Amino acid sequence: MNTAANDSRKLLALNKPKGYVVTRSDELGRKTVYDLLPQWVFNDGWMPIGRLDLESKGILLFTTNGKMGERLTRPGNCIKVYEIWVRGHVTDEHIAAALKGVESREDMLKVLSVERKGTGGAKTKLWVAIDEGKNRHIRRLFGALKDPKFATALKVLKLTRISIGSFRPNIESGKWRYLSLAEETMLIKNLS
């Protein structure tokens, strides 16, 4: 484990590609995020902070510090921003509903903010911010909304986590690095 003097000893980040599960081992034999990391990350008990599903990609943090992991995942403590592509026409009414809260089969889902970034054919690109991470939160929320033109459910086609709190790194897909001490300090200074 080679760390530079200005590297965090508590946090590392991986830019997770699609097709990897966030678990230490998988009973179905699928590739895990640990296949992308040095063996010592697994051996030394570094654990993911939060999850990204098999089809999602983006920033994933790891720590050996359980208290820090709990603080970063506690609802309301840390804002995460995702870039998503949604199949369907996302309207102002959809955005208002996502901000207010949408009832799914299991629970109420909502977002902190939605920013429309563009369109392409029958697809809409959005940046969505949440401060909690229920299972498949964003996918289920948009799946509960209907396209007004075709009366079909909206569907998240691509989902990429682009930031966690103040941490918005530029890391190549499938690569990892330690957070710097400055990045760690900025990330945890606003946590309760």
Rank of each mutant, 00 (worst) to 15 (best):
D147Q: 02
G133K: 03
A144W: 02
L112I: 01
S113A: 15
G143D: 07
H137F: 07
I164G: 00
K155Q: 12
K110S: 11
H137C: 10
K123E: 12
R177G: 08
K158V: 13
E183H: 09
S104W: 11
S166P: 10
S166N: 07
A153H: 13
R140Q: 05
V156S: 03
P148R: 07
K134N: 04
F142S: 08
K149S: 14
K146V: 10
S180D: 08
W127A: 13
V114P: 02
I162V: 12
L126V: 04
H137Q: 10
A144T: 13
Y178G: 05
L179C: 09
T160M: 15
H137R: 09
A122W: 13
K189G: 01
K149T: 06
G120V: 06
E103C: 00
E103P: 12
I164Q: 00
P148Y: 04
A144Y: 09
A122N: 15
A144G: 13
V111D: 05
R105I: 13
T119Y: 14
K146R: 14
K158H: 13
A129F: 06
G101Y: 08
L157W: 13
A144Q: 15
I164H: 00
A129L: 04
A182C: 09
N135K: 11
G133Y: 03
E103I: 08
T185A: 15
G174P: 03
S104K: 04
M186G: 04
L157M: 14
N135D: 03
E184T: 11
K149W: 03
V114I: 05
K117V: 15
E172K: 15
E183N: 05
K189M: 11
G101H: 07
L159N: 09
K110T: 10
L179F: 02
A153N: 15
K123N: 14
G121K: 03
